[in-house]
Computed example of a mutant assay.
Amino acid sequence: MHLTVWNVPETCSEQDVRSFFERELGKYAKGITVYDAGTSNAHADLELDSEVPYVADAVARELQSRRLAGVALRVSATPFEDEEPPQRR
């Protein structure tokens, strides 16, 4: 499961961003990739170590209320990738 985090402050280094998310996500942090660190387009892809579909949504909601270097983060969960749509009856 992946989350995309936007609005990462350009004042933060790649290591600052990684450390922040490792601290916030704890055991759920499987992988953290930071793109365009130090620019106005800085963002991160967070891979979560969970197979439960709703964990990404819950983590996204929780991170949405967090601030990194005083800037409110914008977080979105990737839609369920491997799930079949529910059958209509």
Rank of each mutant, 00 (worst) to 15 (best):
V71A: 05
L73C: 14
S19P: 04
E10C: 07
V34K: 05
H43T: 00
E51L: 12
P86N: 09
A72C: 14
E10H: 09
N7P: 00
G31Y: 10
A29H: 03
V59W: 01
S76L: 14
A44N: 01
S50G: 09
A42T: 08
L25K: 03
F20I: 09
G38P: 00
Y28I: 05
R89K: 12
C12W: 01
V34W: 05
H2C: 03
D82N: 13
A56L: 02
H2L: 09
E14I: 00
A44W: 06
G26W: 10
T39S: 15
A44P: 04
A60C: 11
D57W: 07
I32A: 11
I32N: 12
Q15C: 10
E47H: 12
A56W: 00
S19W: 07
H43E: 05
V34D: 06
K30D: 09
A77K: 14
S19M: 02
A77Y: 00
M1P: 09
R88V: 10
E10G: 02
P86Q: 06
D57S: 14
G38L: 07
L73Y: 04
A72Y: 04
E14W: 00
R74K: 13
G38Q: 04
S40K: 14
V59K: 05
N7H: 12
R67C: 09
S13T: 15
V52C: 05
Q64D: 15
V59H: 01
D57H: 05
Y35N: 10
E62L: 11
D57T: 05
R67G: 04
R61G: 13
K27C: 11
P85N: 06
E81L: 11
L25F: 04
C12S: 15
F20S: 11
V55T: 12
W6P: 02
E24A: 10
T11R: 14
S19H: 11
W6Q: 15
L46R: 05
K27E: 15
Q87E: 13
A29Q: 01
R89Q: 02
D45I: 13
E51H: 02
W6K: 15
E84C: 07
T78S: 08
G70V: 01
A56S: 15
W6V: 07
V8D: 08
